[in-house]
Nucleic acid binder design. Structure first.
Lengths: 208, 208, 208, 208
DNA sequence: AATGAATGAGGATTCATTCAT
DNA sequence: AATGAATGAATCCTCATTCAT
């Protein structure tokens, strides 16, 4: 499927089937440990069909990553109140991120690892960058109005992105056993405390 | 080399040569992308010799991991003042960790990825666990004496471990361009702020 | 299309489209390197359609070969003056062959390779055989009347067929850069010189 | 075997074994129809070993071609009397070539086809070019001294190369059933007749 | 200790051909 | 007639590991 192929509705369904099967398997055993045969077997189709829909295994993986990135960002956007103050919005975004990641654990357990394979460094980092930049803008605004500690905004932004990421990871790997909502709330608090310029502000944001 | 082998001094040198070559390559291209041939080639010896010194590629990797874990922990221990208060000690440990990781970047770029391969989950997680438990004890003590926010101590400990790890990662991957010391100081502040029960305490710890 | 199919005029057009596309591609990249997909793509139709018009890729190739053989032979026949003496007719035939091959280079670049594939040895050789036999009869006649050197007639005939083929090849592959007509004339001379019983005869035939 | 590998005598033997097996198979069924498995099977070694000695199947083929080219040229050189006149030397070379090709039929049946595969066009043509240039120089000399017909020397040279090649081909494919020596003599005569400036010269060269 | 050689179980990908609609 | 989808056999190549010297 080098060039964009026109797919019939049946074809689209099949493609989705394959993507889903692959996503599951990647999550279960990792990218390298998943063979094309495994994917098509799970999807219940012949090996050759894989190549009707995808150029290579790597291409499918990239598809998968980009698709999910988009969804995460949408989820974040939807959770943020554009009229709220910066720290508040970061808080909302962090909670939404954790929640989303928890409910798509199978995917993020795969993605979280930026270094999974050198050949994917680009796609994988890109997602982190976008997220960090989004947060960075808010951090800068917060610093400007005095609600966020006066440090390098990008540096703080990475702290947020990192916290969301690693708490997600510890949760997925069963080392932090709690409900997604509870975890999301905790991470929200964690993030706010690490950024807030003073107790007052932190308390205000967290109690709103 | 199934059983522990007594090595002559020359033999030990050879072994070290191989370990070093492997460490470099693993860091450069990752575990999977590093072939045994690459390792022996870089070490300048014949392929067969690898198996005189190591059982398998995986065994070498485990060796490498454990060895470095130990060193990191030693560096942390050395940096911590046993008479200081808990939050202070966490602060010292975090700074030392970041500093150590920065100066051993090539190794940690490999290690940071807990999911690099299912077969290594155990060794890789173990290091995190040890670190988290160390921190957890301090957090619990801090909570008990009121200097650390009253949350699940293990959860907070993971926050510290995560921050140290992620900032190390962002630094290694060139997205946070600053001197190791500077970064270490920043992460120290980040960690303290996210844990401190109130501003007062944070300020005190950071100014000491 | 196992059995001969009655084709509507539109169908015939489609079929021709496919044949043409195939001929081009075979010439450009060779038989093996041409995929069915390439053919239908160039013809602008769907893959499945190929098999409505042809049984297999090999069948199309055979069709193509036989069709063009026939045309070459017709061209040769048309160029030969039946009343002329044998060597003269060989001369005319050789010139016509070279000229025809030059103007159908794309096709002959494919055909010339008798060993292109074991499965086609039969069709491919057959053309050579027919040509060789045609020439052989003339050579025999020439020998009988003393205008052609007294050697095994078939052997000499192969010399003619070979020369025509090889010069065509060198011309197609750009190593003999000259106009088709000029080349044809040269090959005509070459052939006559290699067959003629003596200078006298050669001069006579070539000056006629 | 990307870089030149140091081979033990045993290794060299193995490599030769593989080359020989490949040469046989290529000749029997052609390049494409010969699988790596077939080669190693015939050599009686494991599949992986092939790649210890060769980078790819194509690389082995190129090796094979170049090696044999060299040998053919050596055989030609050895047969030519450097003090003889040009046409005489062409005559000697042509006979030697046909003889050599006959006794290495298995190889030349493979090689003769310049277009066997687009990827080999370069190596394959190169051999023809070298041969053609060798002959061309002699033809030019012959023209200069008036013993060879006054035509484009390169064009005539291709005629010689072509004749040697296609008579070899017809012989290999069983369409010209005669002893190699006999064939060589015939082709020698054919070539001389097609080049000689006049009967006199042809007769002189052929009777010497 | 050290080397070059040998093994063989994979795994990705290609492509002619067939099928359902 | 025409299309997109589906099949699966076939083949190259990789690489950890083992072996004989």
């Amino acid at each position: 499927m080098s060039e964009a192929r026109r797919l019939t509705s049946q074809g689209l369904e099949r493609k989705t089937q394959l993507i889903d099967a692959a996503a599951e398997l990647f999550a279960e055993r990792g990218y390298d440990e998943t063979r094309i045969v495994d994917i098509v077997e799970r999807a219940g189709v012949a090996k050759g069909l894989f190549y009707w829909y995808f150029d290579t295994k790597a291409a499918l993986f990239r598809d998968l990553v980009e698709e999910n990135r988009l969804r995460l960002r949408r989820a974040q956007g939807a959770a943020i109140d554009p009229t709220a103050e910066p720290l508040q919005r970061i808080h909302q975004g962090a909670k939404a991120s954790v929640a989303y990641m928890s409910s798509h654990a199978h995917f993020f357990s795969l993605i979280e690892v930026e270094n999974i394979d050198k050949q994917f460094t680009d796609v994988l980092r890109q997602g982190t960058e976008v997220h960090a930049n989004d947060v960075c803008a808010l951090v800068a605004a917060g610093i400007a109005e005095g609600t966020i500690r006066d440090e390098d905004p990008l540096l703080l932004a990475y702290g947020v992105v990192g916290a969301v990421g690693y708490y997600g990871h510890f949760h997925r790997t069963g080392r932090v056993a709690m409900e997604p909502d509870e975890l999301a709330a905790f991470v929200g608090r964690f993030v706010v405390c690490s950024l807030a310029a003073d107790e007052e502000i932190a308390r205000r944001v967290l109690s709103s």
